[in-house]
Deep mutational scan, measured.
Amino acid sequence: TEHYTFHTEEQAQRAAKKFKKQGLPVTIHEKNGKFTLQVN
């Protein structure tokens, strides 16, 4: 499991699309105004 932190939801969504294209499951969590992208 890898985690990436982004300052905006837009950045997180863009990164999520790249991972999803590779067939990886992705979840985004919002915490304290930051967005954490979790790749399993």
Results as ranks from 00 to 15, higher is better:
residue 10 E to D: 07
residue 25 P to V: 15
residue 2 E to V: 13
residue 19 F to H: 03
residue 7 H to F: 12
residue 35 F to Y: 11
residue 8 T to M: 03
residue 38 Q to S: 12
residue 6 F to R: 00
residue 24 L to R: 07
residue 4 Y to W: 11
residue 40 N to F: 11
residue 2 E to H: 15
residue 23 G to Y: 03
residue 37 L to Q: 02
residue 19 F to R: 01
residue 34 K to A: 07
residue 22 Q to F: 10
residue 15 A to I: 06
residue 2 E to F: 13
residue 3 H to N: 10
residue 12 A to N: 00
residue 26 V to I: 06
residue 36 T to E: 14
residue 18 K to N: 08
residue 34 K to D: 06
residue 4 Y to K: 04
residue 34 K to G: 07
residue 27 T to C: 12
residue 25 P to L: 15
residue 20 K to H: 09
residue 20 K to E: 14
residue 2 E to A: 11
residue 5 T to P: 05
residue 8 T to E: 04
residue 16 A to N: 01
residue 3 H to W: 15
residue 37 L to T: 02
residue 13 Q to E: 09
residue 15 A to T: 04
residue 4 Y to A: 05
residue 14 R to L: 08
residue 23 G to D: 04
residue 40 N to M: 13
residue 28 I to E: 00
residue 3 H to K: 10
residue 27 T to V: 09
residue 21 K to C: 12
residue 10 E to R: 09
residue 21 K to V: 09
residue 14 R to I: 10
residue 36 T to A: 06
residue 10 E to I: 08
residue 26 V to S: 04
residue 14 R to F: 05
residue 9 E to L: 15
residue 38 Q to C: 15
residue 19 F to K: 02
residue 28 I to S: 00
residue 12 A to V: 05
residue 16 A to S: 05
residue 37 L to G: 02
residue 19 F to Y: 08
residue 25 P to K: 15
residue 6 F to A: 01
residue 39 V to F: 13
residue 16 A to V: 04
residue 18 K to W: 15
residue 32 N to R: 03
residue 33 G to K: 02
residue 31 K to V: 14
residue 11 Q to N: 05
residue 3 H to G: 09
residue 21 K to I: 09
residue 26 V to N: 01
residue 8 T to G: 03
residue 34 K to T: 08
residue 16 A to C: 08
residue 26 V to D: 00
residue 24 L to P: 01
residue 30 E to I: 08
residue 27 T to L: 08
residue 34 K to R: 10
residue 40 N to T: 12
residue 8 T to D: 06
residue 24 L to I: 14
residue 17 K to T: 09
residue 16 A to E: 04
residue 38 Q to H: 14
residue 2 E to G: 11
residue 16 A to D: 01
residue 28 I to W: 03
residue 36 T to Y: 15
residue 13 Q to Y: 08
residue 38 Q to P: 01
residue 36 T to D: 07
residue 31 K to P: 00
residue 20 K to Y: 08
residue 18 K to H: 13
residue 21 K to T: 09
residue 15 A to Y: 07
residue 14 R to W: 05
residue 7 H to N: 13
residue 9 E to S: 07
residue 36 T to M: 12
residue 15 A to N: 02
residue 3 H to E: 13
residue 14 R to N: 10
residue 8 T to I: 04
residue 5 T to W: 14
residue 36 T to L: 13
residue 27 T to Y: 08
residue 36 T to I: 15
residue 30 E to Q: 09
residue 27 T to P: 00
residue 36 T to G: 06
residue 5 T to Q: 08
residue 16 A to P: 00
residue 1 T to W: 13
residue 19 F to S: 01
residue 38 Q to K: 06
residue 7 H to W: 11
residue 24 L to V: 11
residue 33 G to F: 01
residue 1 T to R: 10
residue 21 K to P: 02
residue 7 H to Q: 13
residue 15 A to L: 06
residue 6 F to Y: 11
residue 29 H to G: 07
residue 20 K to W: 11
residue 9 E to I: 15
residue 12 A to F: 01
residue 34 K to S: 09
residue 36 T to R: 06
residue 8 T to F: 04
residue 2 E to W: 13
residue 15 A to S: 03
residue 27 T to F: 09
residue 32 N to D: 13
residue 35 F to T: 03
residue 28 I to H: 00
residue 25 P to T: 15
residue 23 G to T: 01
residue 1 T to D: 10
residue 32 N to M: 04
residue 12 A to K: 00
residue 34 K to W: 11
residue 16 A to H: 02
residue 1 T to A: 10
residue 27 T to H: 07
residue 33 G to D: 04
residue 11 Q to T: 05
residue 29 H to F: 14
residue 20 K to A: 13
residue 23 G to K: 03
residue 26 V to M: 03
residue 24 L to M: 09
residue 14 R to T: 08
residue 15 A to H: 05
residue 25 P to H: 15
residue 39 V to N: 01
residue 27 T to I: 10
residue 25 P to E: 15
residue 32 N to P: 00
residue 10 E to M: 08
residue 16 A to I: 05
residue 38 Q to E: 14
residue 24 L to Y: 10
residue 20 K to M: 14
residue 35 F to Q: 02
residue 1 T to Q: 10
residue 30 E to R: 09
residue 24 L to G: 02
residue 4 Y to E: 05
residue 9 E to Y: 15
residue 38 Q to L: 13
residue 21 K to D: 15
residue 25 P to N: 15
residue 34 K to L: 10
residue 30 E to F: 13
residue 28 I to D: 01
residue 2 E to N: 10
residue 14 R to Q: 12
residue 32 N to H: 05
residue 39 V to I: 12
residue 23 G to C: 05
residue 17 K to C: 14
residue 25 P to I: 15
residue 20 K to T: 10
residue 31 K to T: 10
residue 24 L to S: 04
residue 11 Q to L: 09
residue 19 F to A: 04
residue 4 Y to M: 08
residue 38 Q to G: 05
residue 11 Q to C: 12
residue 7 H to E: 14
residue 20 K to Q: 14
residue 24 L to E: 02
residue 21 K to M: 12
residue 4 Y to F: 09
residue 30 E to P: 05
residue 36 T to S: 06
residue 14 R to S: 08
residue 40 N to R: 06
residue 40 N to S: 11
residue 18 K to Y: 15
residue 3 H to M: 12
residue 11 Q to K: 06
residue 30 E to V: 09
residue 39 V to Q: 02
residue 5 T to L: 10
residue 23 G to N: 05
residue 19 F to N: 01
residue 10 E to S: 07
residue 29 H to S: 12
residue 17 K to R: 11
residue 16 A to M: 07
residue 37 L to F: 05
residue 13 Q to L: 14
residue 40 N to E: 12
residue 26 V to F: 07
residue 4 Y to I: 07
residue 30 E to G: 06
residue 9 E to M: 15
residue 8 T to V: 03
residue 29 H to A: 10
residue 26 V to C: 09
residue 23 G to Q: 03
residue 20 K to L: 14
residue 15 A to G: 03
residue 21 K to W: 06
residue 32 N to Q: 04
residue 4 Y to P: 05
residue 18 K to Q: 09
residue 1 T to E: 10
residue 38 Q to A: 09
residue 39 V to A: 03
residue 11 Q to W: 05
residue 17 K to H: 09
residue 12 A to Y: 01
residue 28 I to V: 07
residue 26 V to T: 06
residue 32 N to L: 04
residue 8 T to P: 00
residue 8 T to W: 03
residue 39 V to W: 08
residue 3 H to R: 11
residue 33 G to H: 03
residue 26 V to A: 05
residue 5 T to F: 12
residue 6 F to M: 01
residue 31 K to N: 12
residue 13 Q to W: 07
residue 22 Q to C: 15
residue 28 I to T: 01
residue 34 K to H: 13
residue 8 T to Y: 04
residue 39 V to E: 02
residue 35 F to A: 03
residue 23 G to P: 00
residue 19 F to P: 01
residue 35 F to S: 02
residue 4 Y to H: 07
residue 17 K to D: 14
residue 37 L to N: 02
residue 40 N to G: 14
residue 13 Q to A: 08
residue 4 Y to T: 04
residue 37 L to E: 02
residue 31 K to Y: 12
residue 22 Q to W: 11
residue 37 L to A: 03
residue 20 K to I: 15
residue 33 G to V: 00
residue 4 Y to L: 10
residue 35 F to W: 15
residue 14 R to K: 10
residue 22 Q to S: 07
residue 21 K to S: 13
residue 4 Y to R: 05
residue 32 N to E: 08
residue 40 N to L: 13
residue 23 G to W: 02
residue 40 N to Q: 10
residue 26 V to H: 03
residue 38 Q to Y: 14
residue 30 E to W: 08
residue 1 T to H: 14
residue 16 A to Q: 04
residue 7 H to P: 12
residue 32 N to I: 00
residue 6 F to K: 00
residue 19 F to W: 07
residue 38 Q to R: 06
residue 1 T to N: 10
residue 12 A to I: 02
residue 20 K to V: 12
residue 24 L to Q: 05
residue 2 E to I: 13
residue 37 L to I: 13
residue 37 L to K: 02
residue 24 L to C: 07
residue 22 Q to Y: 10
residue 29 H to P: 00
residue 2 E to L: 14
residue 25 P to W: 14
residue 17 K to F: 06
residue 22 Q to P: 02
residue 11 Q to R: 05
residue 3 H to C: 15
residue 35 F to I: 05
residue 25 P to D: 15
residue 9 E to A: 10
residue 17 K to P: 01
residue 22 Q to A: 13
residue 3 H to L: 11
residue 17 K to E: 15
residue 40 N to V: 12
residue 22 Q to K: 10
residue 32 N to S: 04
residue 7 H to A: 14
residue 20 K to N: 06
residue 21 K to E: 14
residue 23 G to I: 01
residue 27 T to E: 09
residue 30 E to H: 10
residue 39 V to G: 02
residue 24 L to H: 10
residue 25 P to F: 15
residue 18 K to L: 09
residue 23 G to A: 03
residue 40 N to A: 11
residue 30 E to S: 09
residue 26 V to E: 00
residue 29 H to L: 13
residue 28 I to F: 03
residue 19 F to T: 01
residue 14 R to E: 14
residue 22 Q to D: 07
residue 28 I to L: 06
residue 39 V to Y: 05
residue 13 Q to G: 04
residue 4 Y to G: 06
residue 31 K to M: 11
residue 39 V to L: 09
residue 12 A to T: 01
residue 27 T to N: 05
residue 13 Q to R: 12
residue 39 V to D: 02
residue 34 K to I: 14
residue 33 G to Q: 02
residue 26 V to G: 02
residue 10 E to T: 06
residue 12 A to P: 00
residue 11 Q to E: 14
residue 9 E to V: 12
residue 36 T to N: 06
residue 26 V to Y: 06
residue 17 K to G: 07
residue 13 Q to V: 10
residue 21 K to Q: 13
residue 18 K to E: 13
residue 7 H to M: 11
residue 31 K to S: 11
residue 10 E to F: 07
